[in-house]
């Protein structure tokens, strides 16, 4: 049995990592604008620079984003004991959006606005992360439920201010705001990819080590406490970790809905409820899923790029419904 579970965990890990690896290898080669592969092999312009500077970092960003969103989604579903919990449940996505929208609204028009928007989105996310950490550590009577309701309130407040700023913005800025709020994977500098990886990889590794404990935490505080788990500590650390994952990626990509909710549920149907299988599958499977969706998003109506959130919902949604009803 012990050997069997370990064996299954290894298989799931290997298969999902393979899926992510295949996505990483093939997605950069695919795209609507067509690529002259001979040119690419000779490392000649324009195909080589497009491949190296645009498509490769973009695919890496998609992998990281998918991993972060679905890992934190799986974790939040356990910690909040709510099947409908998403990485945005605690308000971090709305806060990042508020930061970004505020930056776009108030910054002087100019070409150098990207780092500012990113930093402000990050600041918005960080505010919520700090709020989660402070609330769940300092309050004596702390429950996941209170935190979830607080998250809903934070979501509402941030969305309201975003709406206000949006309504006050001029036409150019309004377009920028709409574009940011649609979310999407865009080509980024390698430094951004590295920075994200430096945050996401260690946090994901940490989350994986939490898996056995999440198995009991997801079915009640008392049960988990009776199994030697310090629930309060696990819960607030898990929330902070998940919020960090979502906050840092959302600051770069904008809100990408659906991934954090659907990927863990989808994989739960495949690998079962044990978080020791589900979390690694979510990390790699989520990454592969977003990378593939992004490839479709930039190919299907090329040269127009569809927001990746459209594809994640249109691809994942029907598949999920099929999986739900086919058993």
């Amino acid at each position: 049995m012990a050997i069997e579970l370990r064996h299954r965990a290894r298989t799931v890990l290997a298969l999902s990592a393979l899926a992510a690896l295949l996505a990483a290898i093939f997605c950069p080669f695919l795209g609507g604008s067509g690529m002259d592969y001979a040119n690419l092999l000779r490392r000649q312009s324009p195909d080589w620079p497009i491949f190296v500077n645009l498509r490769l970092p973009r695919t890496l960003l998609a992998l990281l984003t998918g991993a972060a969103l679905s890992a934190s989604g799986a974790m939040f579903q356990a910690l909040l004991r709510d099947a409908l919990a998403t990485p945005s449940s605690l308000g971090v996505t709305a806060a990042a959006a508020l930061g970004a929208v505020a930056a776009i609204s108030f910054a002087p028009a100019g070409p150098a606005w990207f780092p500012l928007v990113w930093l402000c989105a990050l600041a918005g996310a960080a505010t919520v992360i700090a709020l989660v950490a402070v609330l769940s550590r300092s309050r004596k009577r702390f429950s996941a439920y209170t935190l979830l309701l607080t998250g809903i309130a934070v979501n509402g407040i941030c969305s309201a201010i975003v709406l206000l700023l949006h309504s006050l913005a001029g036409i150019t800025k309004s377009f920028q705001i709409t574009h940011w709020l649609m979310g999407g994977i865009a080509p980024v500098e390698y430094s951004v990819v590295l920075l994200l990886a430096a945050v996401i990889v260690p946090v994901c590794v940490w989350a994986l080590r939490l898996a056995r404990v999440l198995n009991v935490v997801s079915y009640g505080d008392t049960w988990a406490a009776g199994r030697g788990v310090n629930c309060r500590q696990v819960t607030w650390r898990g929330f902070v970790a998940g919020t960090v994952l979502v906050g840092t990626t959302t600051a770069v990509t904008g809100p990408i809905a659906f991934v954090g909710l659907i990927v863990p549920h989808l994989l739960r149907r495949v690998v079962g409820p044990d978080y020791r299988l589900l979390l690694p599958a979510s990390v790699f499977g989520g990454g592969a899923f977003v990378a593939i969706c992004d490839t479709v998003a930039r190919s299907v109506l090329a040269p127009i790029e569809v927001p990746v959130g459209v594809i994640t919902a249109l691809l994942g949604g029907p598949f999920f419904v099929w999986l739900l009803w086919s058993r």
């Binding site: 965990a9 056995r212 079915y219 079962g272 409820p273 020791r276």
Partner: peptide, 22 residues
């Protein structure tokens, strides 16, 4: 709780757990 009887009984071993697996 979606676990099997064996898996539920094994949760009793979490206080002894050092690693991820039993």
């Amino acid at each position: 709780v979606p676990y099997t009887v064996e898996e539920v009984v094994l949760t009793g071993r979490i206080p002894y757990g050092r690693g991820l697996y039993e």
